[in-house]
Amino acid sequence: MIRRRLAAWLLGILAVHALAFLMVRATRGGPFDEERALPPETVAALREQYGLDDPMPLQYLRALRGLASLDFGPSLRYRDTEVRTLLADALPVSLGLGGGALLLALLVGCSAGLWAAARAGRAADHAVTVGATLLLALPNFVLAGFAVALFTFTLGWLPPAGNGGLRHFLLPCASLGLPLAAQIARLTRGAAREVWGSDAVRAARAQGLAPRTILLRFVLRPSLVPVVAFLGPATAALLTGSLVVEQVFALPGLGTHFVQAALNRDYTLALGVTVVYTALLGLCTLLADLLLARLDPRVEALS
């Protein structure tokens, strides 16, 4: 099963790569079209240097070779820098942001969901539901705006943007992770509610087991199943969310490159970032599915 999934993953990357190659070139305006136009001889020399006037199939073959060797060539905007270097510099920032956001989403979401389920129908439960609905309704850049207004301009605790120490990552991680936390909280709460009402838990209660023991022994694992199943879509949400959040907080990650490479018609960089995003998304979905199979034996049986 894993081998088949891996093959599908590779095929997916190939397809997205080909599509991105075509789409970025089909867009009007080239990498050297600027309002302050370069001399035509300069543009011709640059196009020649990057092989942009070669026939399309040849350019595509070159791009394919680049994909195979993970060497996408030099960036068209940062002429003295290889796309590989740009990606290698940006990847840790994006993984840090995404990893931090995911961690936050899991910690906050699971605890809030379990807590609400244990106090079903009470004020705490309603508070979690209302809070989660609110967070889900807010786009992440609006959330980011509120976060900056509160933590930078009202409390003065955190910087509004920029790349520095850990404190520069707290607001971006929160803006990216909290909407996910809301979704996770709802999933966990739903699943945990079901388990709390089950015969097994009622029997355990009758035996006088402490609520803490019941939670750890009977409730936790089944409640996490839907969360793990959600990890795949969650990664997709993180990746797309990071495009906006990195721009808002001026973080030098892949998301900023993704947006700007498209705007700048930086063909090589756009292709490189797209491939990395596709690979990451496929890989994370695969991992989440494997984890789910381990957690819930029924999943493996079905596939």
Binding site: G96, G99, L103, L166
Partner: peptide, 29 residues
């Protein structure tokens, strides 16, 4: 079943590590 919680914690630790890797850069001197 506590094992899976342990695994989750490991995932968490990995995320924290990644986060630390993301902020290798120092502030303005």
């Amino acid at each position: 079943m506590l094992l899976s919680v342990g695994r989750m914690l490991r995932v968490g630790r990995l995320a924290a590590l990644l986060l630390a890797a993301g902020c290798t850069h120092a502030d303005t001197p």
